[in-house]
Design a protein around this nucleic acid. Structure first.
Lengths: 237, 237
DNA sequence: ATAATAAACGTAATTTATACATTTATTATA
DNA sequence: TATAATAAATGTATAAATTACGTTTATTAT
């Protein structure tokens, strides 16, 4: 795009380039609490400070490529739910140099997470209510990501990305109670979920939380997509 | 080109900078149809082709600044609903040079729009179903923006940004029918709207569409925000 | 055999959504 | 000045979804 003016065109050569970074707000759920994957920086800039996971965007990659690259580096995982949050571009947001950051949030199944990488990169899962201060505007990114998670989880089945592929209804309920910071009636929650017709019951049970055991379910993405195209609106809230 | 400044730490100097642009998908509603504000480029690159309105992001401004700058240049308007859509960053999206674009969508009251600027910049309001092909990946941006408009308008009162500040209920209904590409029952639509308690009726009527005239209403942002904080969910669909 | 308990199922009352009928305010014209 | 025409506004009955609870079930430890 040329500059706005009606003057003689000035193209790409004349436009000034900027540093572009991606930062990832990585959510996880351990069955009890919502957590964030952050790391304590070993090197400059901001050595010893806590930070979101990120990187500069290389000329040879898209912003999604860059985000998936760092996600893979830090977690060992490839197939991760990843969605753009927003661009942070205040001109003084980074005292080191002008740099815009494209924030993305990711949802991870913590039991898939490769713990071996934790030491290598100094990464930690931290509960949302015990987060340390983060570098730059990363605190702000986290706040915005949480809001976005709530907004999105209200009408899209993204919560399932935080649970094991096989989950029980009480597990799902606890996750929703964490995300929305409110309680749900177990009987109505179950009824609502089953009425949506997007989870299929397995014959297996999870017996870790009760003598009776609780049936495992799987989210049926194919079915959801089919319904979704017909105008079906997912919601458990 | 990395800066030479001694103040810039080395880790920033090693990173490669990129061209960063903003492009705006500008929606308008003329009372009948949803339209997009595009322009026929007078200059290179892509002279004579249709394009969204955009600009490179200058080092001295944020991406929001840049978007508001071009919106003001092309429409004369300052207070415009503007929200980020997403970042387009395929490495080959622009044959001129590697350039990432931050797409934002804007909602405009067409009667506020300064027509004088139309000739100067070759801008045109084009109905969504009669759009010409646009340069680069702008067609894709438009498709994505429309989806986002639908998604957002379903649960947030952003439709009102496309109507005159004083509007009638049938006008609002017509807009919703355009956005959601379906019809609404006038009696139920009205009932639903009024039950939400977020519009206030004025004493004036609009007589342009009937002998009886139709009462004008205003959206009550203060009331909506108050309700919204308490968990109220806006929806007319 | 029984107690304990999370899980699963059930029901009545309330609220919200849908489909459709009727009345109202106004103007043009017979 | 009475009447026809018509969009706007109000109303109503039925169906569907949500909410607030009570009850039964499967299992294990005692």
């Amino acid at each position: 795009m040329p500059k706005k003016s009606t003057e003689v065109p000035t193209y790409y050569q004349q436009a000034e380039k900027l540093l572009v970074a991606v930062d990832c707000i990585i959510f996880g759920f351990d069955g009890e609490k919502l957590k964030l994957l952050i790391f304590k920086r070993k090197l400059e800039p901001f050595a010893d400070a806590y930070s979101l996971i990120g990187s500069f965007v290389h000329p040879s990659e898209s912003t999604v490529d860059a985000a998936r690259r760092v996600l893979h580096d830090f977690t060992g995982l490839e197939a991760i739910f990843l969605e753009e949050l927003k661009v942070y571009s205040q001109i003084d947001r980074d005292p080191g140099d002008r740099c815009i950051s494209i924030a993305k949030y990711a949802l991870i199944r913590v039991n898939d997470y490769h713990k071996a990488l934790s030491d290598r990169y100094n990464t930690e899962w931290v509960a949302l209510d015990s987060l340390p201060n983060l570098v730059l505007d990363h605190d702000h990114m986290v706040t915005d990501a949480l809001e976005q998670l709530k907004r999105k989880a209200q009408f899209y089945p993204i919560g399932f990305e935080l649970l094991p592929k096989k989950f029980t209804i009480p597990m799902l309920q606890r996750l929703y109670e964490e995300i929305f910071e409110r309680n749900f009636d177990a009987r109505n929650f179950r009824k609502k979920l089953l009425s949506l017709n997007v989870v299929k019951q397995l014959s297996e049970k999870d017996k870790s939380t009760s003598k009776k055991g609780s049936f495992l379910y799987q989210f049926d993405y194919k079915k959801y997509n089919r319904l979704s195209e017909k105008g079906f609106q997912f919601s458990l809230v």
